Amino acid sequence: MPAPSRPPADSPLGLLMSTLPRAGRVEWIGLRPARGAAMREVDSVEAAVGAGLSGDRYKGGSGKRDVTLIQAEHLPAIAALAGHDALAPATLRRNLVVSGIPLVALKGRRFRIGEVVLEGTAPCDPCSRMEEALGPGGFNAMRGHGGLCARIVSGGTLRLGDAVEALAEDPA
């Protein structure tokens, strides 16, 4: 079944979908050096087209999952649903924690983080490791809150505090 198409950018629904309340901000950066290895928290990382994030296990992967992002505002919801008081960002194994912008609105469109241009490719669904990380029901606690996968369109350095801004869409 083909993916549903987006409404034309100049249609009423297209205009609503392209209007965001404000820019977001990078709150945390983490790298997964190897499968099952602990996340490594960093202040900045190089992002390269076709190569992913320097030091991340997905470096040089398919391009659809060069970078994984999760919404900071969802961390308390996931924690509550999993029966925890709070969660460290590394527990959820995403590369970037961002605040202030709805990640779901970036699926299928390009956005800029600092000097890097990304394109949202797919929801970042939870994996079975969330049962280990969060306890029984952890997988389901993350469903709908897993974040976004993105490919790198234009490389550069990602830094803590960088703005996260949707790029203007061309009318279809």
Results as ranks from 00 to 15, higher is better:
L53N: 04
C149E: 09
L16W: 01
S5Q: 11
A163H: 05
G161T: 06
R22M: 13
Q71F: 10
L134M: 06
L106V: 10
P171S: 14
E73C: 04
F139V: 08
R109Q: 11
E115V: 12
V116I: 13
G63H: 04
G63N: 09
G146Q: 11
V67S: 06
G50S: 07
M17K: 13
K64W: 05
M1T: 04
L148D: 03
L20I: 02
A34L: 13
K59N: 06
P2D: 13
S62F: 03
V98F: 02
T121G: 08
A37K: 13
Q71H: 13
R159Y: 07
I113F: 08
P2K: 15
A163S: 12
S18C: 04
P33T: 14
L81P: 00
E27M: 15
V116L: 14
R57M: 14
Q71G: 09
G147S: 10
G114I: 13
A168P: 02
R6Q: 06
L103M: 06
M17G: 01
E73H: 05
G161E: 05
T157C: 04
H145I: 02
R94S: 05
A77Q: 14
I101T: 03
D125A: 11
T121A: 07
P21F: 10
R109D: 04
V26A: 12
R6H: 07
G63V: 02
E73L: 08
H74N: 13
T68F: 01
R94A: 11
R151F: 01
I70L: 13
L20C: 00
K64S: 09
L13Q: 08
V67Q: 08
G155T: 10
T157N: 01
A48G: 03
G138N: 03
S5M: 13
R112I: 08
L81I: 07
N140F: 04
H84C: 08
L118K: 13
L87E: 04
R35K: 15
P89K: 15
V117S: 02
G135Y: 03
V117T: 07
T19W: 05
T68L: 00
A9Q: 07
E131K: 15
L103T: 05
F111H: 06
A122C: 04
R6L: 13
K59M: 05
I78S: 09
G144W: 01
G14F: 03
A9W: 01
S154A: 14
I101M: 04
V97T: 12
S99P: 00
A141C: 01
W28P: 01
V26Y: 03
A141R: 09
H145S: 03
T91V: 15
P4C: 11
P126A: 05
G114F: 10
V104L: 15
R110C: 08
G55H: 06
I113Q: 12
A37I: 11
E132H: 10
R65Y: 00
A82M: 11
C124I: 10
V45W: 10
G36V: 09
S62R: 15
E27Y: 10
G63E: 02
G120F: 03
E41R: 15
G14L: 06
E119N: 06
C124K: 12
L75Y: 04
A38C: 07
G83M: 12
L103K: 12
H74M: 11
G60I: 10
G36Y: 07
K64C: 07
I152D: 00
E41G: 02
